Amino acid sequence: MTQSRSSPAVRIQLTPMQIPEALPVGGLTFASTENMDAASCSLLLHPGHPSEMIVHVENFKSRPLQVNLSVEGNFPSEWCQIITDGNEIAPNKKMDVSLYFSIPDTFFEDQEAINSGKKDKLTLNFRSLVTVHIDQGTDNEEIHRSEYFDLYIRPYTAYMEFLPILYREIDFIGRFMKIFEQAFQPIIDSYNVMWANLDPLTSPQALLPFMAHWVAWQVDSVWDLQQQRRLIRRAVELYRWRGTRKGLRLYLHLYTGLPLDEHLPNEADKHISITEPFGPSFIIGDAQIGNAVLAGGQAYHFVVRLRSNISSGIINEQLIQRIIEQEKPAFCTYELTIENPPS
């Protein structure tokens, strides 16, 4: 925290919210007490990451003061935004004003000074001060200025956290470590998200044919992208349950998006219903001529009924038949009923 010049009317104090650990000095000079004091009144800025300087204005007079703040410095004015709750300070009270600094995240890329053929150096250090106008526009107008404070623009580097505190206090090492971070961090980031490239639900579209080959799944253009992702991801499970009611229901669920309704005990109430039409078997004494059926129904026959909804859309009947023919045992017969939502 730093204090402004003495003033009979007000006192201005500055509190940076992000203090630089190192100051730009020549060579590998380690931090001294003077450098630490200078750093405490400076503000560190990272492109793309906002930072704040809090301005405390204390009123020493016995009457309320109307104050207006402005920021002066050798940096673009759009970098700083003044945020305050009001303009009046009660007698012997204090008002806090926030200077919100925001540097474009493309600061280093957009600098014309680093283009080829330029001899100018890239400016990373700026100076600024706060000007307080008291009772502006009246005969009692006063102007008070704070002490100068420095703005240091540095690229953010997480690699500094791996160094001892002694080396973090050297500005050159921070910028030097950023070179290694830009070179190696993309490789580390790719390794950290490798799992997403190996999951069909999140992998790039170009990798889907390769992943389908892993599980011997034939990619068909009739399926949209999301259906292909779900089918490839659960291909092994479909192989395991092929020829069963569970496997057919799972396949139809992945295509149509209809719920499995595993919590419903009654098969006929499910959105994907697969039933076997068994009737009462032949019972002596209860049978009537013309309606007695031996074995109670048609052998190896099942009925598939799909109850669509608005969210799932219209179901392609030909594709459903193709799925059933592929998944059912060869000796089975079936009936298909699709209840599409009314248009």
Rank of each mutant, 00 (worst) to 15 (best):
P259G: 01
R307P: 00
G137S: 02
Y239A: 06
V71D: 02
F331W: 12
S62M: 03
P280H: 05
S32Q: 04
D269C: 02
S98W: 02
I232L: 09
D85V: 01
A295L: 12
Q318F: 04
E327L: 08
I323T: 03
Q111K: 05
W214D: 08
S128Y: 05
Q288G: 08
L43I: 10
R168W: 02
F108K: 05
L248C: 04
S6W: 06
T333G: 11
S40W: 00
I188F: 14
P329F: 09
G279A: 06
H49S: 11
I82P: 00
G247P: 10
P204K: 03
V25W: 03
H144A: 05
D85S: 15
P47W: 04
T33A: 15
Q288N: 12
M1F: 11
T2L: 13
I114T: 15
N192D: 04
I324D: 02
N92V: 00
P280R: 13
P155V: 03
S51F: 04
C80D: 03
E141I: 05
R322W: 13
V10Q: 03
V303E: 15
F107Y: 15
Y255Q: 05
F101Q: 08
Q182N: 12
D105F: 09
F282K: 04
Q298D: 10
N115G: 10
I12V: 15
E181N: 06
H49R: 14
A38F: 07
H263I: 04
Q13G: 05
L225A: 11
L252W: 04
N35K: 08
F162Y: 13
Y251P: 00
V219T: 14
F176W: 12
S312I: 05
T29G: 12
T15C: 09
P259W: 03
A9Q: 06
K328M: 15
R175D: 15
S6T: 14
R5W: 04
L151Q: 11
I143E: 09
P277M: 04
Q228M: 12
P277W: 04
I274R: 05
C41T: 13
D85Y: 03
A206L: 02
H46Q: 11
Q227M: 03
L258A: 06
A206Y: 06
E52F: 14
N68D: 10
Y255H: 02
A183F: 13
A158T: 14
F108N: 07
I83K: 10
C332F: 15
N266T: 10
P277A: 09
C80F: 00
A206N: 06
R305V: 14
L129K: 13
P265W: 03
V236M: 09
S281V: 12
F107N: 02
N87V: 06
M177Q: 14
R245A: 12
D199E: 05
E58Y: 15
F30G: 08
T333V: 13
M53C: 05
A235F: 08
I315V: 05
E276Q: 13
L231G: 01
R245C: 07
M95F: 08
R305Y: 07
E52N: 13
V132L: 15
R175Y: 08
S51R: 00
K178A: 07
V10T: 14
A235Q: 13
A212S: 13
D120W: 01
K270F: 07
V219A: 08
L264P: 00
S42N: 04
S190T: 11
E339C: 01
D224P: 07
D150G: 08
A90Y: 08
E262Y: 14
I170R: 04
